[in-house]
Every structure is written in structure tokens, then in C-alpha cells.
């Protein structure tokens, strides 16, 4: 039987996640509330998002500064997106973006790169540590969700989930809330598949859906056609039309 353990409870030294445990001379102990599985594995259940390089995170523009944008990424630390990394995008306050964490230094200054704007959708928040459960093994959970509700879902490692408003997005939100609450329950993918099948009157089998949607990406929306063309266009628009040379001499 897997069980929930408190901070300070002793765990085996070999199978620990170092971020969520505490070691002294006598032994190793859990430092956050976590789930101990039958084979002694420790899965942390709660905790804020700690920015790590190469994570794709979702956030919104919370401030516009001289050198770039300040992005709120649902973490104790705000991230900075320099203008140089986003020169082909024009962002304004409140825009939702998905971006990659480039660097994090020892005082947790976070720098982002490769931003893309997310439009026409809703943003919901789940506990960051439950993101792996929402994705599932080889995207299985997300494949089922998108197949059943016909939405596009983008998941940030920081626990923010963006759902496009094309399909039945309210059902998707409902299902994600269930996944967050029961993340520690075994056989959850099948449970969610049954739940969605009942609500949408579709026949959902996990393996079929998995084969159909092998190429879907839940991180990157299509590249927005920007880069070179957009850059020249904008320059063209802003530059003043050349004036005709006219020479007049006063006499």
C-alpha cells in the first residue's frame, strides 16, 4: 500500500529525490509532504515551481521595461524576457506567452528565450508537481483530453495550462481539476478516459488515441510567421516615405 508521509519522516537513503529530502548525520528524511509507493519510491506532492533551464513555461507579461519584458511565471521569482530574445514579437501587458527558460543564476534571476504568444483560450493553474501526471506516459493523458474535447492544450512546467477555446474547453477544465485532485490515485488515465467517454458519448480507447496523435506537440504552438518578413515590414511601415528632392532657392 502506498501511503502519504509527513515532512521529517525517515526514508531510505538510496531512492531519494534530493530536492525534496533532508539529510543529517543519522539519516535521510522527507522534507515535503509526499507519497511513499510500495517499492519505496518517494513522490513529492506539494511545492512551488523552481525555475530550471530548458523548461517550457507559460506566463503573462506583468511589466514592460526598457530592456525587455517582465513575465510572471507562477513561481516565487519573476522572469525576464530581454527584447533581444523577442525582437520579432510585439508584446503588451497581460499577453500570455509560452517560452523556454534560458538561464537561472544563483540568486534566481530567470532569463527566457524563444517566446510564442498564446491567443483565444483560458489559462488555469495546477500544482507544478502534478504536471507530469497531467502529461502522462508518452503524452497519454493529454492525447485523451485533446481527442475527447477537441481543444488544443499547452502545458507549462510551472503548472499553468492553456486551453484553446475551440472545442468543449469547459469539460477539459473539469477533467484537469479531477486529475489534479487525484494525481496520487492508481489507474487514473483509464478513469479519466471513462469519465470523458461518458460525457461526450465517444468511444475512447487509450491505445487507439495514442497511435492517432503521435505527432501532436503540447509545448510549441505553430511558429508564428514573423521572423524576417515581419521585421522588414515593420521597418517599412515606420520609416517615413522619402521626400521628393526639390530645390528651391530664395532670391
Amino acid at each position: 500500500m502506498s501511503k502519504i508521509i509527513m515532512p521529517g519522516e525517515e526514508i531510505e537513503q538510496e531512492k531519494t529525490t534530493p530536492n525534496y529530502s533532508y539529510t543529517d548525520e543519522k539519516g535521510t528524511y522527507a522534507s515535503v509532504i509526499s507519497l511513499q509507493t510500495e517499492d519505496g519510491k518517494i513522490i513529492p506532492l506539494e511545492g512551488p515551481y523552481q525555475p530550471t533551464p530548458n523548461d517550457y513555461v507559460i506566463g503573462h507579461v506583468s511589466d514592460v521595461k526598457f530592456g525587455g519584458y517582465e513575465i510572471d511565471i507562477n513561481s516565487p521569482y519573476k522572469a525576464f524576457l530581454p527584447m533581444a530574445n523577442a525582437f520579432n514579437l510585439k508584446l503588451s501587458l497581460g499577453d500570455i506567452i509560452i517560452a523556454k527558460v534560458k538561464t537561472v543564476n544563483e540568486v534566481r534571476d530567470v532569463e527566457l528565450e524563444d517566446p510564442r504568444i498564446l491567443k483565444n483560450g483560458v489559462l488555469i493553474r495546477i500544482t507544478p508537481l502534478k504536471v507530469p501526471r497531467l502529461i502522462g506516459k508518452r503524452n497519454s493523458m493529454l492525447n485523451i483530453l485533446t481527442y475527447a474535447t477537441e481543444t488544443k492544450i499547452y502545458v507549462g512546467k510551472n503548472g499553468l495550462v492553456f486551453i484553446s477555446q475551440d472545442g468543449n474547453y469547459t469539460l477539459a477544465i473539469e477533467a484537469i481539476k479531477i486529475i489534479e485532485k487525484q494525481a496520487h490515485v492508481q489507474g487514473l488515465t483509464q478513469k479519466i478516459a471513462d469519465f470523458l467517454a461518458q460525457k461526450t458519448n465517444k468511444q475512447i480507447s487509450i491505445e487507439d488515441v495514442q497511435q492517432k496523435s503521435q505527432t501532436v506537440s503540447y509545448i510549441l504552438p505553430e511558429k508564428q510567421n514573423n521572423s524576417v518578413n515581419y521585421y522588414h515590414k515593420s521597418r517599412f511601415e515606420t520609416s517615413r516615405p522619402r521626400q521628393k528632392k526639390s530645390f528651391r532657392f530664395r532670391r
Binding site: 515532512p7 533532508y22 506539494e46
Partner: peptide, 11 residues
């Protein structure tokens, strides 16, 4: 504090 997921050495 434990519910908030803040790392604690002990309860």
C-alpha cells in the same frame, strides 16, 4: 506549512 509544500526539516 506542510500543506503549502514548504520544505521542513521536521514537524
Amino acid at each position: 506549512l506542510a500543506d503549502a509544500g514548504i520544505p521542513l526539516k521536521d514537524m
